[in-house]
Design a binder for these strands. Structure first.
Lengths: 338, 338
DNA sequence: TTGTAGGCGTTATCAC
DNA sequence: GTGATAACGCCTACAA
């Protein structure tokens, strides 16, 4: 019912191999035959069977997205970016969540890669920070691109933002508004992004000569609930911080929640800055000042690095570092008079 | 390097076909051979190659998720539910967004299905409401499950909530609080969910004998921005509505935004109810009363219907109708005194 | 520049 | 019950 390479070969009066050469753009092929075969291909509406190719090549035309991520907005953004890059190609996207804490995680991924013979995978933070995982991909003969908050790998397999810089700038912005008592809701232990963001935060304070009291730095795990909890601790301090930087938007939303529960006005009594610029940032009230992670572009670039779109070597595909930008919204104001 | 069916056959002293029978749980097979072969399989850690199976069977071990959805939270929830169902099976999830408005949509999907030879697909609303699409899946020999707000297909290929009922209950709740001027932010034209929810809304009003003034029903497109716009129109009415039901949470967040911009207090001046119970509902301030769509369970069930988990015939897999529940949070209060 | 033979790892057919 | 043999549709080596 569906045309195969044999049908094309027969009708074009050539061998299967020649058709194969046309499909795979082999350079050693006369223009005449190429054209003749191509005509038949078009007439028949022939499309090579991916299953057969996968078997013959030992490689599937699938791109995997491997993640273990507490932030759903980010996962979706990445999917969107990858799909944009894959659009119009023969590749499809396979989603594979894993459990970072499971001792079987590496074995699971290995089994997955070896079974499915993926063409390549995109690794999302925080699991992208796991060097053993990257090594495993390589061993399994699977290309990979890691996404992260700092360069953890060679540029051809890495797409990175500079969180340290971005948070430094965000903190400087708070300082410029007059804030001196600035609380931090840090991300979870073991996350590179959490570390980078804290370093940026501390760097800004140090440069401004601000010496933070004990207890102004607290930790969350990138969830709303943890932001809520952390904010309660911070708001119990005396004197209270006049501004809080949360390491991601979800926790920032939690901070806002906690502040409201205490009857504080935002930004009059407390300024808040988040990180990521996910949808929630613009949708809560007041709109949240935050750092925009160019997630779509990063994911797009990650996918392009895998499938190697030769079409735009100087285009977005070649980029490895992506700067983040501060987005100023209504959640920041000068501190209240004392 | 990796064991194949031939290795197993040789070591077990049987033919390939016999090994194949063991893998596929063929009933006509002596227990003795089955056991012998199974031992070798375990020793070698043999796993059948999915690419080869796909070629031989003309069918891939992939489940597709086809969607064109304005609501990212929902897409993620569905992915989660499907992946839960697929966990521990040989199936993988392939994500395929499509453009509802493109004239080439159906052809694209057909090409996708015929090329990839998916085992089955889950269709998300609103595209799941497209009967031509369902027919196309069938023609392509691809199983499917549709998710939706009402039964649009036979129970074995449908997973449905009862939005009409749920919204009726939610509206009755507002009425019971004393509200009489209740605004509606309807979903977009052509969405079955929008229609069902409006019908439920109107039914509750009719039963309570409330005759809504013109202009209290307005339309959005399920986005935050459209909720904002619609709320502005509603709040311009005189007399102003004392409560607003928005057909999804994102629009409800927009309503809240618009109300705040006018300096209204929620819920003192205006009560708001949303629909979906996505993450944003609990994270905005005040927390949003909403209708919980059991999306994880529905998606789980949709996947089970595809892969036919015989393990739990009476379990969640068999279910086709899923009731929604009202979630009461702080965004609703009695109307202000006049 | 093109064609032939053989293989990728599995399942289906049909004898034994 | 079990096993040769031939698909499945494509690709690589090697030969011409």
């Amino acid at each position: 019912m569906k045309a195969t390479i044999n049908d094309v070969a027969r009708l074009a009066g050539v061998s299967k191999k020649t058709v194969s050469r046309v499909i795979n753009r082999s350079p050693l092929l006369s223009d005449a035959t190429r054209e003749r075969v191509q005509t038949v291909i078009d007439e028949l509406g022939y499309v090579p069977n991916p299953q057969a190719r996968a078997l013959a090549l030992g490689r599937n035309f699938l791109i995997g997205l491997i993640h273990d991520n507490p932030n759903s907005q980010m996962v979706l953004g990445v999917q969107q970016g990858i799909l944009d890059a894959l659009h119009g190609t023969d590749f499809e996207l396979v989603v594979r969540p894993v459990d970072r804490r499971s001792p079987a995680m590496l074995d699971d991924v290995r089994a997955f890669l070896e079974r499915q013979r993926l063409f390549g995978v995109v690794l999302l933070p925080p699991i992208s920070e796991n060097d053993a995982l990257a090594r495993l991909c390589e061993e399994s003969g699977c290309r990979y691109t890691r996404m992260g908050s700092a360069m953890l790998d060679t540029p051809d397999r890495m797409v990175a933002s500079d969180d340290q810089d971005a948070v430094k700038a965000a903190t400087e912005y708070l300082i410029a508004q007059g804030h001196r008592r600035i609380g931090l809701v840090e991300g979870p232990q073991g996350f590179r992004s959490a570390k980078e963001r804290r370093i940026g935060f501390e760097a800004a304070l140090a440069e401004a000569g601000i010496d933070l009291p004990k207890g102004y730095m607290t930790q969350g795990d990138y969830t709303f609930a943890s932001g809520l909890e952390a904010a309660r601790r911070l708001l119990d301090r005396s004197p209270r911080p006049t501004a809080i930087f949360a390491s991601n938007d979800e926790m920032a939303a939690g901070v806002l929640h906690a502040a409201r529960q205490r009857g504080l006005s935002i930004p009059e009594d407390l300024s808040i800055v988040g990180f990521d610029d996910t949808a929630i940032a613009a949708h809560i009230w007041p709109p949240l000042s935050t750092v925009r992670w160019p997630i779509l572009q990063m994911a797009y670039s990650a996918a392009v690095k895998l499938i190697g779109d030769a079409g735009d070597d100087d285009g977005p595909g070649k980029q490895s570092r992506f700067p983040s930008a501060l987005v100023r919204r209504a959640s920041v104001a000068p501190p209240p008079q004392e």
